[in-house]
Design a binder for these strands. Structure first.
Lengths: 201, 201
DNA sequence: CACAAAACATGACTATTGTCATGTTTTATT
DNA sequence: AATAAAACATGACAATAGTCATGTTTTGTG
């Protein structure tokens, strides 16, 4: 298990690269993205410390990465040769069962997301995203939950399949309604219950 | 491993049921659906013989089913108590690795679908669906590939997150353009290459 | 600090898809 | 074969989100 550091603008791996290593996030956040033919970006998931890179599940089944893993700021990643990792899993039923549980969980998550994409409006999708982020990476502050991951309106748009402009407009409305404050560097959720309500209406 | 048969109108399990069993499809097709609060349906996946029910991955991680499993026509399903299955996986590294591979594959599939939902128009999503179905369940016939699963326009709509009316309109256009023919009981893909092109444009 | 680049913002207009209403055709069941 | 139910179809209109253009503010960097 070796540790590698990556900075802004670098890639951990890119769509189409062979799946040589198994990865785990140690520090920082990593985003998994796919690109469409005309260059539009779709962010599948933001990985945080402890997450396996199975958002890019190709490591488990597939010779090539189906998406790109991109650091968000400075990150530190642990990695291990795929073969060694598989050998370890074979020898260690507890670890294998843990991976099965983890993958099951991630699959459920992906399908819940598919449901949101299929049925919800742009504002609801954005609200769902904010709720998720708040629960995964929010720290309590005087005026609400601050999101520790730096996310621009553009990033949010890519995560829920809308355009940057709509993300901006909806965030402006959320701000007016006192549900959130701030922008990328300092985004604060002020009314989590109302956002939850909106997400599930 | 016991075999159970289900017919139209029955449920194999429903959203919220405890996850007692691990399931595999033996014969027929099963659809995994989630419902929104206002009753709209979202079909996550159509399972075919050999598929594990990990579209409903709760069996692997979670005490309750996050979706409903519904037979499409007559089906036969194999099942095993969850505990026994987990015990078997622990004792059998090959089986465990196989499940890991399968889950990884399904996760990739789910994320590819998320990308399609995020970036593509209704007609492209429908085209993607038809391509997938053709490749998974199509049988060659004189005039094209026949889809062996019975799918109404409504079913298709639920699978790609559009309304029944738009599904009907788009299918009418596809028919006019000689990409497909027929309806639910006898749906034939006449021009797979063109559908593929449309799906990825 | 100055300056460039990125992020945020807003308006006008368009495209896409949903909604609702109504009617026809197909399929299944007695 | 008759009949009910489901599926398919279509029009008119509304709502939602995308596109493009342009301008302001914030952030990062030499």
């Amino acid at each position: 298990m070796t540790e590698t550091r990556y900075g802004k603008g670098e890639y951990i791996f890119r769509e189409g690269d062979p799946t040589e290593y198994f990865h785990i996030v140690k520090e920082g956040s990593v985003k998994c993205v796919k690109l469409s033919l005309d260059g539009k970006e779709c962010t599948l998931k933001v990985l945080m410390p402890g997450d396996l890179f199975c958002c890019d599940a190709a490591t488990f089944d597939g010779a090539y990465h189906p998406g790109t893993a991109q650091p968000m700021g400075d990150v530190s990643v642990l990695r291990m040769k795929k073969e060694a990792y598989f050998k370890m899993l074979r020898a260690n039923p507890d670890a294998a069962m843990e991976v099965i549980r983890y993958l099951g969980n991630r699959l459920n998550e992906a399908q819940e997301k598919a449901k949101v994409f299929a049925l919800d409006r742009a504002d609801q999708r954005l609200a769902s995203l904010l709720v998720n982020l708040a629960e995964r990476s929010g720290v309590q502050e005087s005026n609400g939950l601050r999101i520790t991951v730096r996310l621009t309106r553009q990033d949010m748009a890519n995560m829920v399949g809308i355009t940057t402009e709509t993300a901006i407009r909806i965030m402006a409305r959320f701000k007016k309604d006192r549900l959130v404050t701030g922008t990328a560097a300092r985004l604060v959720i002020r009314d989590l219950p109302k956002l939850k309500l909106l997400a599930s209406t």
